[in-house]
Simulated assay, not measured.
Amino acid sequence: MAAEQPALTVLQLDTRFPRVPGDVACARTYRAPVEIIRIPRATVARVVTDRPDTIDLAPFDAAIARARGDVIVTSCGFLAPHQARLAARTGRPFIASALGALVELSETHGPRGILIATYDWGSLTAAHLAGYDCDIVGLPEDSHLRRVIAGDMATLDTARAGEEVAAAIRAHLRSHHRHILLECTNLPPYKAAIRAIADLPITDILTCIEAVRPGTVRPAFL
């Protein structure tokens, strides 16, 4: 019997930390079948970099060639500079990063109206942001979620992570902000905590997926 056609293929970095519901690489995030392909040697340290030109894209090319999903996405927003390069490898919709939404959001709100929440503020460059000058908040280096991701740890306290993510965003919110964009694909599980402190619309990798293929993401995570 043939395997069910997946709605989505996720190109996951070479990590083993917990992927909880709401994470792009957790099957329980979706209403439809998902295919997850781990990209060898694509560690967080190698992909989350202020030099995106140094990322080895060959393993991503190989994964795209065998991906079966209707839509293909990556599990790291820092691949944004390679959207066109990787999308050219397939005829299907390809989403490298939620940062791809910056063009449309900037037209609506202006770049300064957008607050970007990222894993690593220090590594996010103009190349990732397509030149837009937006306000940015990164996960503090001593925060639980960042340490779990950086250390590829086996356990994750989601309640603690949610509290810390919300606190970091709250500290950077200003009256001119009109929209929050989550670069990091590990942040959507904490949207409820973010919404508790910010009455603003949120764009992330899941809303981008849903825009391309409606009915893919469970409503609780949108």
Rank of each mutant, 00 (worst) to 15 (best):
R92K: 14
P93I: 13
P93N: 15
F94V: 03
F94E: 00
F94H: 02
I95N: 00
I95E: 00
A96K: 00
S97N: 03
A98H: 02
G100P: 07
A101R: 01
L102C: 03
L102W: 00
V103Y: 14
L105R: 02
S106D: 07
P111I: 04
G113R: 03
I114N: 01
L115T: 03
I116R: 02
I116M: 04
I116L: 06
A117L: 10
A117I: 11
A117C: 06
T118E: 04
Y119F: 12
D120C: 12
W121S: 13
S123N: 15
L124S: 05
L124P: 07
L124N: 01
T125V: 11
A126S: 14
A126R: 06
A127Q: 09
A127P: 01
H128T: 04
H128V: 02
H128E: 01
H128N: 01
L129W: 01
A130G: 15
G131V: 03
Y132W: 14
Y132H: 12
D133Y: 08
D133H: 11
D135G: 05
D135E: 15
I136V: 15
I136G: 02
I136M: 05
G138W: 02
G138E: 03
P140F: 09
E141Y: 11
D142I: 10
S143E: 10
S143D: 09
H144Y: 10
R146N: 06
R146T: 05
R147I: 08
R147A: 08
V148E: 07
I149F: 10
A150M: 15
A150P: 14
A150N: 14
G151H: 04
G151R: 07
M153E: 15
M153A: 15
M153K: 15
A154Y: 11
L156K: 02
A159Y: 12
R160G: 06
R160C: 10
R160L: 15
A161N: 06
A161R: 01
G162M: 04
G162C: 08
G162F: 05
E164R: 03
V165D: 03
A166I: 11
A167L: 13
A167D: 12
R170T: 11
R170P: 03
A171V: 12
A171Q: 10
A171E: 08
A171T: 10
A171Y: 08
H172D: 13
L173W: 03
L173P: 01
H176P: 09
H177I: 07
R178E: 15
H179T: 08
I180E: 00
L181S: 00
L181C: 01
E183A: 04
E183N: 03
C184N: 06
C184V: 08
T185I: 13
N186L: 13
L187E: 06
L187I: 11
L187N: 03
P188A: 14
P188W: 07
P188G: 11
P188D: 13
P189N: 08
P189H: 05
